[in-house]
Design a protein around this nucleic acid. Sequence first.
DNA 1: GGGGCCATGTAACCCGTTACATGATTGA
DNA 2: TCAATCATGTAACGGGTTACATGGCCCC
Lengths: 178, 178
Amino acid sequence: MCLGALMLGDATGYEIRKLYEDGPFTIIHKAGYGSIYPALQKLLDEGAVTVTDIAQDRRPDKKVYSLTATGRARFLDSLNTDPAPDRFKSETLFFLRFAHLLPVARQRVLVDDYIARNRALLAEMERAMADDLSPTPGRRLVCGAGRAVYQALIDYLEEYRRTMADGSASPDGESQDE
Amino acid sequence: MCLGALMLGDATGYEIRKLYEDGPFTIIHKAGYGSIYPALQKLLDEGAVTVTDIAQDRRPDKKVYSLTATGRARFLDSLNTDPAPDRFKSETLFFLRFAHLLPVARQRVLVDDYIARNRALLAEMERAMADDLSPTPGRRLVCGAGRAVYQALIDYLEEYRRTMADGSASPDGESQDE
DNA sequence: GGGGCCATGTAACCCGTTACATGATTGA
DNA sequence: TCAATCATGTAACGGGTTACATGGCCCC
């Protein structure tokens, strides 16, 4: 993972973390400092990367990591293995699986919030697509896939939400969306 | 998680595992024996479930777990907490992010296999929807969401695959430029 | 006979997340 | 002044996955 990040250019641990926490990469994989710094150290020991200490004033010093030929080869190698199956985990859908045990109001909150969260994610993804002026095909692919999936989920949930509203004629003090 | 499974009816550890490994639940959450049996033991200690030993001949004996009132209350309670955000992880998309570093032939294999896997998942989901004669709304929601998402991903990937083919028009999976 | 299903469990390990520790600078 | 950003790391904890251990039945 760190090797992949460095394939896109030299970077500090801090920057790698941002890449996997903020960018479109977030959909695919996440990583905190707790994973990155030790991994970088290990890669250094193994000769896959090199470091350069850079002193900055008005900023903390930083350590910029670069790939070695070994590191580059290793990453390319790993791209030739069979990728592990995707895994997806959704507590919200888990909750919703038991909708029949919940009051309708709670169901609505769950669905509405879920829609809102996915809309935010979609917006972020769109922004990421627009931001990058010279995207590689891979980056476009990932962003496009993210967008397609979010959009599909949102559409589906909105349709579901409509059927919910139908069934139970709205009692008083109830939530109107937005 | 175990509580949720038992909410759908008494079950053995083995059956709970199947529920989360085979059914439409798989998209949402997975669990192996290593998680389930210890969890069940813990729930037993806490009084959330009870066990009944059932001797079977021509079959191993089994332990059927049932919820107590406490267990039921606890599960319902948990449905009222804020659900954790979804998390999705895809090694394939990670690989594809670096498509520009790979030979076209490899890219094609990656995409084609990915499409195939998602198609299989979609088919499984459809089968799960068709199988169940009296689905709860929650189950329908989950299956529908799964279907929508898989379908969107497949559609997107197929379109992408078409744009890949454009560059080098070859009918069957043969590769030329590397 | 061999593989797959039923059925229960344990133990080791890996991975990732969270919290902690530190500290300067910049902008609201 | 308070929060956020830059920047590096460590340590503990928790959760999940894999592998191991056992054993009979059923079907091809």
